[in-house]
Amino acid sequence: MFTVNEILTMKEPGDLFSDSKRIKEEYHKLTKYWHPDFNFNSKESQDVMAKVNELYFKGLDLIKNGSWKADGFIRLSGKDNKVYELKYNISHDFELGTMYIGNTVVLYLLDENNKDLYENAVKIIDNFTYADLGMKEEVSKYLPKIIGKFETKDNKLGIVIQKTSDLFLLNDVLDYFDGNIPEKHAAWILSSLYNLVCYLDYAKLSHNSISLKNYFVSPKCHSGALLGGWWYAVPQGEKMLGVTEETYSIMPPKVKNTKAGDISTDLESIRLIGRELLGDKNGTNLNSKIFIPIPMINWVRGVSSSKAVEDYENWMKCLYDSFGERKFTIMNLNDTQLYEKVKKF
């Protein structure tokens, strides 16, 4: 039997009920134990019974569509009559649906009214271009690879992206560091982003949603992968399909006027990420953080050149002015440490 606090903090039917086949039997047992009529109408029994009912009816809705959810587990039934199951470490809602982050995959589950953005992401990802096999071998490690697509019986759109086990969502990493990543780690993260944006400029793409919630980083390798947000990507010069409020807030005026894909949006997004990693999204109070080198502060508070290679080269100079010769700084962080902490938020 679960405690009161355990029940009240549950989020999914599978956290309370052992499986979809026994949910009604277990619900009746819980009702007999917790119903207010049998507990002198206490506030505690009312709260628990409300949570039990919430999870029960949520469970019935899932069962109706051949699905099931528990903490760290999701089962979905596709319109192709296949069953899709995933054990995941953490899930996050985002503006188009929900992402589930496993060890070697990320599942993005979108609402059906976002089908145009879903199809756009698939088209962009399936058509990355490279100068040669050498570039493909190197750059593709930092780009998404689709290993599955499906539509659920309750009209959700699923897209499964491959990832390596050492990659963690940057927003989770920032939460782990309580909203303030050490400046030397922020530096290599920004370097990995500038490398990637140079590729986007080569490929004549504008991602339009580079953010903490779409970028994954590897503390082990000091690298990153832009796995999410491709819903909004377009060829440079073509009309945007939409952007998030965050992206719109940093878009250069010319892009707001033309509403066309432009690499300057991605370059400005990197500077925003830099400010966020250093603990000051607006950048107004960075000067008070005496441990951050002045050149780095000036960089993240500055304006991009609108040219990816130029920004990359200037960033390399900023790095040297900030820290001198480059040295590998170990970030001691593994999946157990990360998820034990951030799942409590």
Rank of each mutant, 00 (worst) to 15 (best):
T3P: 10
V4I: 12
N5I: 11
K11Y: 01
E12Y: 11
E12I: 01
P13T: 09
G14T: 01
S18E: 13
E26T: 05
Y27V: 04
K29E: 11
H35M: 05
F38Y: 01
F38N: 06
S45I: 07
Q46D: 12
V48Y: 01
V52K: 03
K58G: 15
D71F: 07
D71W: 07
L76G: 03
L76N: 07
K87S: 14
Y88C: 14
S91V: 03
G97W: 00
G97M: 05
M99V: 15
G102A: 14
V106G: 00
L107M: 11
L107C: 05
L109H: 07
L110S: 13
N113T: 14
K115D: 14
V122M: 13
K123P: 12
I124C: 12
I125E: 12
E137A: 02
E137C: 04
S140F: 06
I146D: 10
G148Y: 05
G148E: 12
K149D: 10
K156L: 09
I159Y: 07
T164K: 09
I181S: 03
Y199W: 06
S206V: 13
I210F: 13
S211D: 03
S211I: 00
K213W: 08
Y215N: 03
K220N: 10
W230H: 15
Y232E: 05
L241M: 10
E245M: 13
Y248K: 13
P252I: 09
P252L: 06
P253V: 04
K256I: 11
K256Y: 08
K256W: 05
K259C: 11
G261W: 13
D262S: 04
D262Y: 07
D266V: 06
S269K: 04
I273Y: 02
R275H: 00
G279T: 13
N282F: 10
T284V: 10
N285T: 10
L286W: 04
N287I: 08
K289G: 09
K289L: 12
I290T: 04
I292Q: 03
I292E: 06
I292P: 04
P293L: 02
I294M: 06
V300R: 00
G302T: 03
S304D: 08
S305R: 02
E313G: 01
E313F: 01
N314P: 07
W315I: 02
D321F: 11
F323P: 07
K341N: 01
V342Q: 11
